[in-house]
Nucleic acid binder design. Structure first.
Lengths: 330, 330
DNA sequence: GTGAAAGCGCTAACAA
DNA sequence: TTGTTAGCGCTTTCAC
C-alpha cells in the first residue's frame, strides 16, 4: 500500500497540513520538522496521489492526444517529440486513436473529458464547420496538429499548401512537360486526408498557372500507371514528373521504374514528401520535403501547455518551416 | 463548467445517491425517477469525473506505457494495436518514453505511480536482476513487451532467440560458407538491445554448431564492410550471407550492393528481421521474419488487463509465433 | 425506494 | 510555526 500524507503525519506527530508544507517547502515551517517529515516521506517512499491532487486543484496535469493511428511514421515521430517536453513540464500524455472515424472521435473525446484532461492535441478526423464548433466548445484548450488548420483553432504543422507549391515550382523549373500528383488513397475516406488535400491544392494551383498538363494518380494501382505514363511520355518525346504525397509512394515508383531501366532524374522526374529516413536506401537520392516532425511535436505540446497555463491567452497558427531537400531525382 | 451529480440531484430534487443509482441502474429505484434523472443528465451533458471515481474506487482505469522511444516502427505499431483494445475495455493509455535511460525510467515510473495507474506495459531499459527486482516490487501488474523476458515477469513478444535460430538454419540450408550477423548498434548502449542480443545468441548458436565461419558486423560502417566482405568472398570462391537484425540494415546492404551489380540471392545471401512494410520497394524480395507486431500489442494489453482485473492471477510468458517470410534474397 | 453520512487523499482558508 | 476544517466529485454502507 502506498503511503499517504496521513501516514507521514501520524508517524511524525504533526498534522497533514504540516506535512504538505514540509514536502513543498511553502509557508512557515521549522527546519527541524521539515527535515523530519522529509526523512519519513523518503523512508516510506511517499508519492503524492496525483488524482487526489487533481480533484482538489481542478487540474489533472494530463494532456489528451487524439490521432487517427500510429502506423503512420509522421504521428509516431510527433508523439515521440512531444513526450519529453510534456514530461519536463509535469504533464502526462493520454493517447487515443480515432482511426479517422468521426463517431469514434467524439466518443474518445468524451472519455478523455472524464479524465479531466487539461488540454488536447488533436488531428481531427474531418475538417468541417461542425467539427470546428464541437472542438471550439470544449472547455479546455484544443490544438490541431498536422494536416491543415481548422477554423481559428490553434494549430501547429506545416503549410502543406505552400510546401506543395514550392515543390511543384521546383519541378517546373526543371522543365517537365507533364506533372502528376500521386496519392493512392485519394478516394479512401479512411485515410488521413487534410494534409494531402492541401498539398494537392498547392500542386494544382502552380501546375495550372504554368499552363502545363497536370493530373492526379489517385487510386491503388499507381505504380503500373506511373510506369505506363513514363513510357508513353518517352514515346511522345515529353518529360514527365511525379510529385508524390509521401516518400513511400515515390520510392515504389522509383524502384519499379529502376528495374525497367528507367532512372529517376533522367528518364522522368520524381519528388516525395516527408523526408522519410528509410529513403536512404534508394539508388537515386529523392527530392523531397522535410517537414521537421520533431519540431512540430515539440512546438505543438509546448504551445498547448502555454495555453493551459495561460502563458498565452490566445492560440495561434504556427507553421513550422518546411524545406525542400535536394536530391537527384529531378 | 461540467455538471456533477450534485447538480443533477438538485434539479431532480433527489439525493446524489439516487442519481448514482439511476445512472448505473443499480439497486432499487423507481422507473420514474430513473428516467427523470437520466433525462436531466443527458440534458446537462453529464460526464462522470473519472478522477473522483478513481480516488474512491482505488482504481484509475489507466495503464502506463514505458518504452524507449517511438522512432522505432515496432513500438508505434504495438501501441497502435494496444489502444483500441484498451479503450474497448475502458482503459486509457498513459505513454511515457525513457530513451533507454535507466534513471529516467525510474523517474517516469514514479511519476506514473502518482497517477495511480492500474498496471504497466514496459520495455525495460536494461535487463538486470536489479531491474527485475524493482519492477517486481511495484504494487501493480507489470508486463514486459518485446525484446526479451525479464525474470518471471509476464511477457508478450517473440522468441527472438528461436527466430534467429530458424533464420540462421534457413541460411545454412542454402549452403553459405560464411555467416554474418549485422547489427550496427551493437556497441551503442542507448539502443534498444535485449531483442537483438537474443537474436545474436540464436544466430551464434546455430552458426557455431554448423561449423561454418561466422562473425558480427557490429558498428556504424556496416554497409561498406558488407560490400567488402561480399567481394572478398567472391574472390575466394566462397558464399557469404548476412542476417540483419532489422530489415532496414538489410535494405541498405541490398541497395548498396545492387548498385555494384551484386544481387542478393545470387551474389550473396541476405535476410532481415521485422518484415517492415516499406521493404516492398526493394528490387529483390527480402527474406525476413514476420513478428506480428499487432498481435503482440493486442495480446500484451489484454494480458495486462486480465491481470489487473484478476481474470488471471499469474502472468505468463507469451511468445507470439513468428514466421519466416520467403523472399528471393537467399 | 430513497437519503444521510462517511471517506478516498489531497489542498487551501482560516484559526490558534 | 502549527492545526482545524472544509471540500473537490464520487461511491458505499447503513438506516429509514
Amino acid at each position: 500500500m502506498a503511503a499517504t500524507t496521513k501516514d507521514i503525519a501520524r508517524i511524525c506527530n504533526v498534522s497533514r497540513t504540516t506535512v504538505t508544507r514540509a514536502l513543498y517547502n511553502q509557508g512557515r515551517i521549522s527546519e527541524k520538522t521539515r527535515q523530519e517529515v522529509l526523512r519519513v516521506a523518503r523512508e516510506l517512499g511517499y508519492q503524492p496521489d496525483l488524482l487526489a491532487r487533481s480533484l482538489v486543484k481542478g487540474k489533472s496535469m494530463t494532456v489528451g492526444i487524439a490521432l487517427c493511428d500510429l502506423k503512420n511514421m509522421f504521428f509516431s515521430n510527433v508523439i515521440d517529440a512531444m513526450e519529453p517536453v510534456a514530461r519536463e513540464r509535469g504533464y502526462v500524455l493520454n493517447i487515443t486513436l480515432h482511426d479517422n472515424d468521426k463517431e469514434l472521435e467524439r466518443e474518445i473525446i468524451k472519455h478523455l473529458l472524464g479524465y479531466k484532461i487539461d488540454g488536447m492535441v488533436i488531428h481531427p478526423s474531418v475538417c468541417s464547420e461542425e467539427e470546428y464548433e464541437f472542438l471550439k466548445n470544449l472547455d479546455f484548450p484544443v490544438l490541431v496538429v498536422g494536416g491543415a488548420p481548422l477554423g481559428d483553432l490553434p494549430f501547429v504543422g506545416n503549410d502543406e499548401y505552400e510546401a506543395a507549391k514550392r515543390a511543384t515550382e521546383q519541378m517546373i523549373r526543371r522543365e517537365y512537360d507533364i506533372l502528376y500528383f500521386v496519392f493512392p488513397d485519394f478516394d479512401d475516406p479512411k485515410k488521413e486526408f487534410a494534409g494531402h488535400q492541401e498539398r494537392y491544392r498547392g500542386f494544382a494551383e502552380v501546375a495550372k498557372a504554368s499552363g502545363k498538363r497536370y493530373e492526379v494518380l489517385g487510386n491503388g494501382n499507381y505504380i503500373e500507371k506511373a510506369l505506363g505514363v513514363i513510357r508513353e511520355a518517352e514515346q511522345d518525346g515529353k518529360r514527365v514528373a511525379f510529385l508524390c504525397s509521401g516518400d513511400f509512394y515515390a520510392a515504389r515508383i522509383m524502384m519499379a521504374a529502376y528495374q525497367e531501366h528507367l532512372t529517376a532524374g533522367i528518364d522522368y522526374g520524381l519528388m516525395g514528401f516527408d523526408n522519410d529516413e528509410l529513403m536512404k536506401i534508394l539508388p537515386v537520392r529523392l527530392w523531397t520535403v522535410e517537414n521537421h516532425k520533431e519540431e512540430i511535436g515539440k512546438r505543438a505540446i509546448s504551445e498547448l501547455i502555454d495555453l493551459i497555463e495561460r502563458k498565452k491567452d490566445r492560440g495561434e497558427k504556427v507553421n513550422i518551416p518546411f524545406e525542400l531537400v535536394r536530391g537527384n531525382s529531378l
